[in-house]
Amino acid sequence: MNIAFFLLPKQEVVCLPQDATLRQTLEKMEYHRYTSVPIINNDGGYAGTITEGDLLWYFKNHGDLSLEQTNKVKLMDVPRRLLNKTVQIDANMDDLISLAKLQNFVPVVDDRNRFIGIVRRSEIIDYCQKLIMEKHKVL
């Protein structure tokens, strides 16, 4: 199965530039109600994923940080607990399934390592559910 079938293209993905501020990150995640968002570097490549947990740990470790001061903190200065792995567009479903166990979505890159979109965990689970259902129908 070609993973391009499951791809949510970059144009439809809420992303953050690597030079975004902590305030911009908070506002975008709140507005879209996302728990994690991909970060894109200046060359259009995938630079990582920021999660609510990363933000919470940052605030915990910087207890004196006010909401006003979040305009001065760069997103790339916020440590990330996990380094989400990417797949290339020609990856197989086994690669996606193994990554989706740990990630809300799997970032997809082209052969030049440019970010081209994501495959959501929910899409992968739906695919697996259909396979299981089809297998049970055969039995």
Rank of each mutant, 00 (worst) to 15 (best):
P9H: 07
K130N: 10
V37H: 05
Q69W: 04
W57L: 15
K137W: 14
I89H: 07
G44F: 01
Q88S: 15
S66V: 05
I132F: 10
L16A: 15
K137A: 12
P107G: 10
L16K: 12
M1P: 04
H136E: 14
Y46D: 00
D77P: 06
S98V: 12
H62V: 03
V108E: 03
C128K: 08
R33L: 00
L96S: 02
W57N: 15
H136Y: 07
G48K: 03
K85V: 03
D64V: 05
N104F: 11
M1H: 12
L102T: 14
K10V: 13
N71R: 12
K10I: 12
E52Q: 15
W57I: 09
P17D: 14
D43Y: 06
Q129N: 11
V119Y: 03
L75G: 09
E123Q: 12
L7E: 06
R23E: 11
R81W: 12
V106Y: 00
E30Q: 14
G53K: 10
L75R: 01
K10D: 05
L7M: 01
C128R: 08
V106Q: 05
V13H: 13
H32G: 04
L131F: 09
N71I: 07
T51Y: 10
V106D: 02
R23L: 13
D54G: 03
P9I: 06
V108I: 09
M76S: 06
N92M: 04
G44N: 01
D77R: 13
I39T: 10
L55H: 09
I3E: 00
G53H: 15
V108H: 03
L102D: 09
K85Q: 15
L55K: 11
A4V: 11
H32F: 12
Q129I: 13
Y46C: 04
L139A: 13
K130P: 01
G117K: 00
L56I: 06
D19G: 00
L26G: 03
C15V: 11
D90H: 15
D54Q: 06
L22Q: 04
Y34E: 09
V37Y: 03
V108G: 00
V14I: 14
I116N: 03
N113G: 08
S98I: 11
Q103A: 12
F59I: 11
Q24K: 05
L131E: 04
Q88R: 15
G117A: 07
F6Q: 07
K60P: 02
T49E: 07
V108P: 01
Y127C: 04
N71S: 15
T70L: 08
D90S: 13
Q18V: 08
V14F: 10
Y34A: 07
R80M: 10
V37C: 05
I125Q: 01
Y34K: 15
C15G: 04
L83W: 11
H136K: 14
L139Y: 10
